[in-house]
Every structure is written in C-alpha cells, then in structure tokens.
Design a protein around this nucleic acid. Sequence first.
DNA 1: TATGAATGAGCCTTCATTCAT
DNA 2: CATGAATGAAGGCTCATTCAT
Lengths: 201, 201, 201, 201
Amino acid sequence: MGVTMDGTKQQRRGNTRQRIQDVALELFAEQGYEKTSLREIAERLDVTKAALYYHFKTKEEIIVSLFEDLTQPIADLIEWGRGQPHTLETKQEILRRYSEALSHAEPLFRFMQENQATVRELRIGETFKDRMHGLREILMDPDAELVDQVRSLSAMFTLHAGMFVMQDLVGDVEKRRQAVLEVALDLVTQAHEHAHADTDD
Amino acid sequence: MGVTMDGTKQQRRGNTRQRIQDVALELFAEQGYEKTSLREIAERLDVTKAALYYHFKTKEEIIVSLFEDLTQPIADLIEWGRGQPHTLETKQEILRRYSEALSHAEPLFRFMQENQATVRELRIGETFKDRMHGLREILMDPDAELVDQVRSLSAMFTLHAGMFVMQDLVGDVEKRRQAVLEVALDLVTQAHEHAHADTDD
Amino acid sequence: MGVTMDGTKQQRRGNTRQRIQDVALELFAEQGYEKTSLREIAERLDVTKAALYYHFKTKEEIIVSLFEDLTQPIADLIEWGRGQPHTLETKQEILRRYSEALSHAEPLFRFMQENQATVRELRIGETFKDRMHGLREILMDPDAELVDQVRSLSAMFTLHAGMFVMQDLVGDVEKRRQAVLEVALDLVTQAHEHAHADTDD
Amino acid sequence: MGVTMDGTKQQRRGNTRQRIQDVALELFAEQGYEKTSLREIAERLDVTKAALYYHFKTKEEIIVSLFEDLTQPIADLIEWGRGQPHTLETKQEILRRYSEALSHAEPLFRFMQENQATVRELRIGETFKDRMHGLREILMDPDAELVDQVRSLSAMFTLHAGMFVMQDLVGDVEKRRQAVLEVALDLVTQAHEHAHADTDD
DNA sequence: TATGAATGAGCCTTCATTCAT
DNA sequence: CATGAATGAAGGCTCATTCAT
C-alpha cells in the first residue's frame, strides 16, 4: 500500500515535512482551509493524522509554515522598496518584481485571495495585512489626488486579479503576466505623473 | 427574556425570515461562512436552531436566499447590457450602474469576495461566475489587444477592490466610490479607444 | 437494547439530564474523572456523545453541576455556623450536621477525596477549598495551642476518612457513622477545653 | 543546546534514570498522574520521549519504581511491627517511625493521597492497600469497642492529613509534625487504655 | 411558528508506545 | 544511550440536520 517498485514509499524519509506542505497547499488552494481536513491530507500521503502532528504542532502551523517559506521574497522586496527613493522608477521596479514574486508562489497566493475571511483569523492574517500596507506605502503618494491614490492601488489589485481571475483570458501564462504588468505599470505611471506634473519632468 | 414591554422581541412576528437573513449576512461577512454556525445565528436571534429550519431548508439556502434577494439588480443590469450596442457609452453606463449596485449590497459582496473558495462549492458559485462572465462579455472586446482586454477586466476588479480593500483610504464613502469609478471608467475608455482608434468616432 | 417491557427506554424523556448526572457520578466515583470518558457515559445511557452536549456544555460542567446540586447543604451549614458564637456546642453541632451531610452525598465526596489532584484543577476546586476553610474557621480556635488546632482539624478528617476508608470496619453503616462522629466530637471537645480551661465554665 | 560550558547537561551522564524519576515525581505530585504526559517529562529533561523508554518500559513503571524506591522504609517498619507484641509502646513507636517515614517521602505520599482513584488502578494500588492493612492490624485491637477502633485509624489518618492538608497551619514543618504526632499518639493511647482498662496498667 | 431533544459524522488534538538507526 | 519518525487508539467537542410535539 503506497509502496512503489523500488521499495520506497514515494521517496519517504526525511522529506515528509515537505510532502505534507505540498499536499496541504494543493488541497487548501483547491477546497479552502476549513474544508480541508487533516484526515484528508494524511490519507493522500498514506500516513496517519498523528504523523502530521509530529511535524506540525497544529493545523494552523502548516499554513503558517507555507506562508513563511513562500513569501520571503515579498518581504525582501518590501524591505528593498522602503530603502529606495519614491520615484517612478522605484515604483515600476516594485511592480515588476512583485509580479514575478506572485507568479512563483501562485497556489499560496490564490489560497490567500480565495480564503481572505479565513486568513484574517489566522496568525498570518496580520502579517499579510502589514505586507500589503508596506507595498501601498511605497506605491502610493499620500499627497496625491484621491483618484491617483486609487490608481496606485488599482495597479496592485490588477496584478492580483491577473493571477487568479483572468486565467482563461489567454493560454500563454507568461504573455498574460506581461500584459497585466503593463496595465499595472501604466496605472502607476499615470498616478505618478499627475502628482508630479510640475516638479518632475 | 428578550421580550420588550410592548410584547415585541425586537419587531417580532412575521419577519423572522428577514431577521435570520440579516443576522446571517452580518456574521457571514464578519467571520466567513464555515466559521459561522447555525447555533451562533440562532443565539443572536434568541430562537432555537430548529426555528431556522422552519424558514430555510439548509444552511446553504440561507446564503442562496441572500444572494437571490440582493443581486437581482445586477442580473437586471447584465440583461440590459446584453441588449445594448457595445459602444463606449454602454460600457461606461454599465460601470456606473455596477458601482452603484455593489454599494447597495456591500456586505454580501464583501462576503463573496472574502469567501471565494467557499462560494465556489456552493450552489451560488456557478451563478456568480456566470454573472461575472456576462459583465465581462459586455465590457471586453474579444478582438482587442490582450493588454486592452486586461484593462477592461481591471476596471471591474478595481470596482471590487475599491469597495472592500480601500476602506481606509478616505473617510467619505461616496467620495471614494466616485474616485474608484473614475479610474474604472478611465481604464475602459483607454481600452475602447485603442481598439477603435480608426473605426469609431 | 435498553428498551424495557413497557416500551420505554428506561423512563426516557425529560429526565435525561438527571440520568447523565447519575451515571457520570457513578463512573467518576468508580474510576476517576479522567479515566471516565464521555463515550462511556453515553454508552451506558444508550445515547450518543452529542446528546450529552445538549445537556452540558463540557465534561467539566457535569461534575460542576453535581457539585452544585449535591453540596448545597454543606454551604448552608457553613453559613449557619458563621452566624453562631464559637462555643463548644456550636462546634459539636457543626460536626453532627456535617457528618450527616457527608453521608447523604457519599459518592460525590468519595470522588472528591479520591481525585483531589483533578479536582484542584477544576472550577469546583477553589470553591471546595473555600468550604473547607470555612469549616475550619468555625472549628478551630486561632489562639489555641498548635496541638489543639491539630485536634480540631483531625476531627474533620476523621469524619472524611470514616466515610471512605473505614468502610470495611463494620457492616452497619449507621453504627460506624456514630462511632466516627463520637471520636470527632471528642477531639473537638478536648481541643476546646484545653483552650478555655480557665475562662469557660 | 541545553549543554553547558563544562560539557554537562545539568549533571548529565549515568543518572538519567534518577533525573527522570525526580522530574516525574515532581510533575505527578503537582498535576496528577494522568494529566502529566511523557512528553512533558521529556521536555523538562531536554530529552526525547523515546529516551524515557530506554529507562522505563512504561509510564506506569516510572511511578512503580518511585514507589518501590521510596516506600521501603515503611515496608520495613511494618515488618518490624509484626514481630513485636501489640503493646501500647509498640503502637506508639510505630506511629513515631511512620510519621518520620512519611516526612521523608513527602511528594510521593502527597501524590498517592491526591490520586487515590488513579493509584487504585495501578499495580502499586494493591501493594499500598496491603501496607495500610498491615499498619492497621498493628495499631488496631480487633476486640476493642468500635469507637476505639476508629480512634486507632484516626491516628493514622491524622498523620496523613497532617502532612498534606495542614500545610498552612504553621510555618515550621518540624513543629507541625510533632504536634500532629502528639495528637496521633494521644488517640492511640486512649484507644489502648479503654481496651485494657483492667488488664494493662 | 417554533421548541426540545437527539443523532451521525466528523474535526482537531493528545497520548502512550514502538522501532530502526 | 538516545533520537527521529511514526502509529493506533482514543478523547473532548462542534456541526448541520431531523422530528415529534
């Protein structure tokens, strides 16, 4: 049962923790956090529920570990952004990198997008909110007109939506990402130019 | 117990169904669908769980009823849009009316936004998806450049995000809605103009 | 299964709460609190575990309810004692009534005696401790010699031990109770007389 | 990790078995047997659960070993008592030695006192009961009046209670022990004198 | 129109224990 | 002498749902 030809049980050993994360993320993204039971995860891995508890103290810890392991690039990105001058170039670079970071941890971000109510109650909720705020502070000019502030935020959400909602828009994932990024860049550019019409060139 | 001097129990009588919907929506929007139990709803209303079953056959039916009661305007809007020529004016009018419709059933839409994984598994999921597709068909030009298709969709998601995510942007709700709408209109206009640079007026 | 000749299921209905308490107390006293599972209680009653939760919010609440229902006489006794002058007669009357109160809720007190470590962690622990302190304040003279203070307390513990430990001493329960009570009265009398050798009669 | 400068890990080496016993007894006495998990014991010692199983075959064996290691003096005492004539002097000497034995293994006896229900189900339960019976046979005169039999037993329970319950009576432990012992001696003396009013002097 | 009582399924979690290394 | 990894059993609890009254 679950044992392959070469006597392994799907590469068993040492990597169980990783395998739990993989299966969990897949199921969380597919069915949501609450609808995914630890029994289900365990069954897919052909281990007992108790085995999960050897590797993670609680169900929540599984999602927390995924979050921590997969979103580090975004934390780094924000850190980097904070240290840069708030020029148009910085904002554009942030969007470019953010778009790429998102695409590298797609299932997790889809999960977070589609389970916002749940995430809010989890330990990662606060952290996530802080991150979004961080991004916002870099992209948005607090003195700009309201409509241009909205443009900046809209750039962010376009990136999000582009990843999860427009999946059927076009087959080529990379092409779509580029198109979405272009729109986001455009929005942030418009916002920036209105605000600095006289000071910048 | 829970009964006031004038024999009412907070407007009591006949409107229990409505009261269940109100409380349910409030809790669903606040904590999510799965985390809200019928016990909790019943307790808030000071009735028994069994009473809920007199008015609704299942928990799912409560959210279905809310969806049906509150999103009719949007179904109508789409119906109307389908019958119109796909001109820029139509698209702009759609966005204007959609923005207003959203603002009139805010808690429900917030719920749908924050519980997408859940909604997908419910009966309303399919209907909701169809609606979004309907809107999309009106707003988006299938022959346009990919980037302009994205612009059109971005207009929609900006409306959504504007309602739920940018709540702290500015105090005045109506002002924010206008700014968000302006950005959305802008996006759809740009998309349309690129696509019809030579043919349209 | 569990259904008697007359079609009832052991007088079912209306008294389930009481039946739960009865069975629970029996099992708690027999095996201890932690070793008694709700499953076991439910099985004995031929209901499901969930039924227990209809009547009691938690396992702890079952024991709390038993404590509250069965130890009221002792609370009353202490209340009464507090209002009396601290004469020898009062002390003797307290012991007499206490002995009788104990004998009327024997299983519960046996449980508390044999599960002290557990009880200490439960909500009733503090209350129980307070009661014992109450009794003590009435029986014990704070100015007496240490050895006489011990005598007073020893009277109390003799009553306790007499109920649970000396069960095989003699067949006739009531006779044993009287003998135990006599020893307790003796102890308290000696203590009192030493302390008031010159002041009292 | 957990290892100090000089290579020890809190005296490390060879004495792990002893350290397990120490920690276990501390926890058992504090929280009770069932509420103390092997995980907890292992964590306090900074070893794994599996390590415990190297030293003890089961959880029960830990408490059994403690019992055996710490109560030998009492077994010896009873053995000695059996060989003596049942005079008042013997009884008094037994009480004196018992009191001292109790005070040397206080945590264990506190544990046994507060977890009687648990102990009863363990292997040590029977042994413990036998010991108590042994003591009783020496202290109690089977032909005495019931009330004097109770007195003899009361002497024993006074010793017990004196150790665990009257802890707040007075600060000086040794003083308290002497007072408690005095009361116990008194009880056994009264019992003996009533029974031998005419035969003994 | 509602309640009181109960169920069946399932959930997350903990525990003592085992065994290969 | 001890660890890493896992298991089987069980535990307390919650939930949506049902049904007789």
